[in-house]
């Protein structure tokens, strides 16, 4: 499988002149293959957003390298690499550039000199993929947070990226907005096999990923499939993260003397175990 992203021993500090300054990212390495979905989780200030900025060349590491699509990211190939990536940020308002939905989706296309006829097609298609194609002429102030984030995703998709980075794209949304956005991403993954890196502090969201990287204090605290990572249980809670609902409930049931299989992460699996316990009673 093609390796599309490769971080090698990346270090970054916002205060390079201060010898005692804290590294926001401190020696992080990991690889990503085409078609993978990786969740980078950690509490606020764990270095996860800095990591996202390093991946797309908004920041350059003081030590280590960031590899994208086979090359090391440099000032020279920055724009070419960026044209193959999309990024959606936290605040739905502050990334809406266009006057209307369609203008905003077209923005990256205009920047990359895509001809007009092609643009209209791509804008339509991208908006269809996020189910916002009936909102072409809507202005941002008349959209909900979830809708704006879906438009931002469409803006990234229109460029047909090989990698989509979501930098806490759901953290400012209400539960409904979050659900809309997650449903769209799940749908995209299934239909297009898009590679996704999602930076989040929501472990329920991380559950959906193929692989989870847990950040703490600028370092990689753990890495593995959601199963492997969530088995650390308590250790994650201590980092200020919240275990998935099913795991919290399992722990509470354990206190009541009801044993469930360790590492039961979904509600479905948990309820099935409880039904079995009940019929064996």
């Amino acid at each position: 499988m093609e390796r599309i992203l490769s971080l090698q021993d990346v270090r970054f500090t916002y205060t390079p002149d201060d010898p005692d300054g804290r590294h926001a990212v401190d020696g992080v390495s990991f690889d990503m293959h085409a078609g993978e979905w990786i969740a980078v989780v950690g509490h606020n200030g764990s270095g996860k957003s800095t990591l996202a900025r390093l991946m797309i060349g908004l920041l350059f590491p003081q030590e280590g390298t960031v590899g994208l699509f086979g090359d090391t990211l440099t000032e020279d190939n920055l724009w070419e690499k960026r044209s193959q990536m999309g990024m959606v940020f936290q605040n739905p308002d502050n990334q809406f550039v266009g006057a209307t939905v369609q203008d905003d989706v077209a923005f990256a296309l205009e920047n990359n000199g895509i001809p007009f006829e092609e643009m209209t097609l791509r804008v339509q298609n991208a908006l269809k993929q996020v189910k916002m194609d009936t909102f072409l002429d809507h202005e941002p102030q008349h959209l909900s947070g979830g809708q704006k984030q879906r438009v931002a995703i469409a803006g990234a998709l229109a460029l047909r990226p090989r990698l989509l980075i979501l930098d806490e794209a759901t953290s400012m949304l209400d539960p409904q907005g979050r659900e809309e956005v997650i449903r769209v991403i799940l749908d995209l993954r299934e239909k297009t096999g898009l590679s996704v890196i999602s930076i989040t502090h929501d472990l329920e969201e991380a559950l959906l990923a193929d692989r989870v990287v847990v950040m703490n204090g600028g370092r990689k605290f753990a890495e593995g499939t959601p199963q492997e990572v969530f088995l650390k249980g308590e250790a994650l809670t201590e980092l200020g993260l919240d275990l998935p609902f099913a795991m919290r409930l399992s722990a509470l049931l354990g206190e009541q003397g009801i044993g469930t299989e360790p590492g039961t992460m979904t509600e479905r699996k948990l309820v099935e175990q409880l039904w079995t316990l009940r019929s064996n009673r």
């Binding site: 409930l249 509470l252 049931l253 009541q256 003397g257 009801i258 009940r278 009673r281």
Partner: peptide, 12 residues
């Protein structure tokens, strides 16, 4: 919820 489930399962 845990207490309710435990009660139904005859435990705790």
């Amino acid at each position: 919820l845990a207490a309710y489930l435990a009660a139904d399962l005859g435990k705790g």
